[in-house]
C-alpha cells in the first residue's frame, strides 16, 4: 500500500505529498494509508504538502480536514503546507470550514510549526 501512496518518514514526522489531479478513490486511499502509518510508527507529526495541487474542491478539502481530525485522535499533530493562492481564495469562497486546520507557507516552516505544536500538546516550554 505504501508504495502507491506518496508517504515519507523524516524522524517522528510523516510527510504526505499530494500532487496532480487526484481522483476521489486515490484521495481516500491516501487518507487510510496515512492513518495506518501514523498508528504503526507512532508518528508525532504529519506534514501534508499540497503545493502540487492546482485544485482543491470541497471533497478533497473535506478529506484533508477529516484526516487532520483522525491524526489528532491518534495523538499526533498535523499541518498543511503550500496551499496555492488561487486555491486558498477558492476554498474561502466555496465556504469549506477549515478553522481547525493549521497551515504553513512551506515545508520548512511546516516542520517548525509541527515542533511548536508538539511542544504545546506535551506542555513543554522552551
Amino acid at each position: 500500500m505504501l508504495e502507491q501512496v506518496p508517504l515519507q518518514r523524516l524522524g517522528h514526522t510523516i510527510i504526505v505529498t499530494l500532487q496532480g489531479d487526484l481522483d476521489d478513490a486515490t484521495v481516500e486511499r491516501i487518507e487510510r494509508a496515512v492513518t495506518d502509518e501514523v498508528a504503526k510508527v507512532r508518528a508525532r507529526g504529519v506534514l501534508i504538502d499540497v503545493s502540487g495541487l492546482a485544485v482543491v474542491d470541497s471533497f478533497v478539502a473535506r478529506v484533508i480536514a477529516r484526516l487532520v481530525g483522525m491524526v489528532a485522535l491518534l495523538g499526533a499533530v498535523s499541518t498543511i503546507v503550500g496551499i496555492q493562492p488561487a486555491v486558498a481564495i477558492t476554498l474561502v469562497e466555496l465556504g469549506v470550514p477549515m478553522d481547525h486546520v493549521h497551515t504553513a507557507l512551506n515545508a520548512e516552516q511546516g516542520m517548525a510549526r509541527l515542533r511548536r505544536m508538539w511542544d504545546d500538546t506535551t506542555g513543554y516550554r522552551r
Partner: peptide, 12 residues
C-alpha cells in the same frame, strides 16, 4: 484564480 474557481465549481 478565475481558472481555479472555474475548475473547482465544475468539479462540485
Amino acid at each position: 484564480t478565475a481558472a481555479t474557481k472555474l475548475v473547482t465549481a465544475g468539479s462540485e
